[in-house]
């Protein structure tokens, strides 16, 4: 069991990160903290997918005279670049919503907001 965990340490780490993020999203009262939790979850998934493409001793997959196999798999990295763009847009939208909520209500604590409704 421990040995299996050790081999897959990268996956285990992303699972732990994911859970930390989810915990923040669910339990934190401050909207910004909630959102930081979401960013931690995003990072966990990104790290998981990038780790998929790693090849031990692999080289950057760039063709040329001095290119020598094995190469790392570039596809997960390309996917995650797209994923990061999505995450940045989500963050931008969420932060601007939080700013507007603060301007309107003077607070970003979820429980105080709930009382105002």
């Amino acid at each position: 069991m421990i040995a299996l965990l050790w081999i897959n340490l990268d996956y285990a780490a992303s699972v732990v990160l994911f859970c930390i993020g989810l915990y923040c999203v669910v339990t934190k009262n401050n909207l910004i903290k909630k959102f930081i939790g979401l960013n931690i979850m995003e990072t966990a998934v990104f790290a998981f997918i990038v780790a998929l493409g790693v090849v031990e001793g692999g080289d950057a997959p760039i063709m040329g005279a001095d290119a020598n196999a094995p190469f790392t798999n570039p596809i997960p990295q390309a996917l995650i670049l797209t994923g990061i763009v999505v995450a940045v847009s989500t963050t931008a939208l969420a932060l601007s919503l939080i700013i507007r909520i603060y301007q309107h209500c003077g607070t970003i604590e979820a429980d105080e907001l709930r009382e105002m409704e």
Partner: peptide, 24 residues
Amino acid sequence: AEMAAFKYLIMGAVSSLMVLFAIG
């Protein structure tokens, strides 16, 4: 409207991450 959108965003973003994880 902004509060409803934020609630929607948090739940929606978590679900999107689930889907991305499954794709991985």
